[in-house]
Design a protein around this nucleic acid. Structure first.
Lengths: 212, 212
DNA sequence: GTGCACTTGCACAGCAATGTGCAACTTACT
DNA sequence: AGTAAGTTGCACATTGCTGTGCAAGTGCAC
């Protein structure tokens, strides 16, 4: 057991992955899930988890690192090559939605937790990038809002989670949620509903989004 | 100590109130705040808290009851006498904002917590009332959205919290937040920005909101 | 200044979770 | 078969929180 971190058996590696996967889901369901709950859900004994991660904090940190990275990458990729703030906002939103399942846990964790407040900070760069896009849009007159750009970024973030909740509760399907969330995000930024719908439809087709 | 629930000394009553007040703030800061944290924050010993509330659950329940009631009442009052869905939505939003400080804890608690998941249900009536207003607005063509009315209600709710967070983080002042949040809520529902601003300005004056 | 209502300060039992140590056991590879 | 990495099943110490019991204290009212 000494070199469980360095050594690479197929089994050990698979277990590690599965523990991380399951932990993500389990912590989403209950941010206070115990190591035992996670271990059992992963089909493993608690002691084994401690073989892969020195403590709970390390496990969660690994999880958070991966999720933050994935979201940041998706957001950046979604904005790449966009023409104008509206396209950038829509593209980033659509892209982030792709990793939504993993993103959810982030905020579920960030909401509570004395232990994990650093997480909000970790996510700040993404929010700032978003705020910058919003700022440009306001300046260019593409966006309109009673709120300053940074506050709009907060709204944008929460708006996505609201739609995720709605999906979870069966109020709309995951298929339609992606575009609906993006349209709503643009609308909340003051883009006329018709323009927002049109833009998102165009981007969805380009990027090969769901439906047609 | 036998009749602390029935008897009424000025001191005991004041303590009870202060415990509830402080608990609200303390649980907002950390939904997992212990009885000891709450007690100390209220300038009291843990044992004393147990004199007023049989257990942690009862304390939180009292808190929740009060907050839910206040929010529901404010929401209803804000919609009273409104002409059309737009006014109803704006009025309800402005009114709810008044009790925002207490409302925040509700969702902070509802988000996590295996113990308190019933809270989301308790809040459901308010959300449903909101959804009904939204539905009427969609039907009347006053609102436009890619989302069904119930999902819009989710967005509406989260939008308010996003603005609250923004206020907490100093992105805008509490003074301007009330109207800005309401305008944004209307805008997210597809109401043109200019119309939304105008309507909210009118309502703010009528109801004697902040600023003018 | 006596009594009552409430508060305090301890002490206690109980529980749930964390993190470790160690001796078996199972796989997989050779 | 034999070896090594990984897994399991306990046992254990520790910690933090809950809820309760009881005796001594404090303030207010009459």
């Amino acid at each position: 057991m000494a070199s469980m971190t360095t050594g690479n058996s197929s089994r050990a590696d698979a277990n590690r992955r599965r523990i991380l996967d399951v932990a993500l889901a389990e912590l989403l369901r209950d941010p206070d899930a115990s190591m035992d709950q996670i271990a059992r859900a992963a089909g493993v004994v608690r002691r084994t988890v401690y073989g892969h991660f020195p403590n709970r904090e390390a496990l969660v940190a690994t999880l958070v690192d991966g999720a933050v990275e994935a979201v940041a990458a998706a957001h950046a990729a979604g904005r790449a090559g966009a023409e104008g703030p509206a396209e950038a906002l829509a593209g980033g939103t659509l892209a982030v939605w792709e990793v939504a399942d993993r993103y959810r846990i982030l905020v579920a964790l960030a909401r509570r937790s004395v232990t994990l407040q650093g997480l909000r900070d970790r996510l700040a760069p993404v929010r700032e990038a978003c705020a910058e896009v919003l700022r440009q849009g306001l300046e260019a007159g593409v966006f309109t809002s009673a709120l300053p750009a940074p506050a709009m970024a907060y709204v944008h973030e929460q708006l996505l989670f609201a739609v995720m909740d709605a999906v979870n509760d069966g109020l709309l399907t995951a298929r339609e949620a992606s575009r609906a969330a993006t349209v709503t995000a643009l609308t909340a930024a003051g883009v006329p509903a018709s323009d927002a719908t049109e833009l998102v439809a165009k981007l969805s087709v380009e990027k090969g989004g769901p439906g047609g």
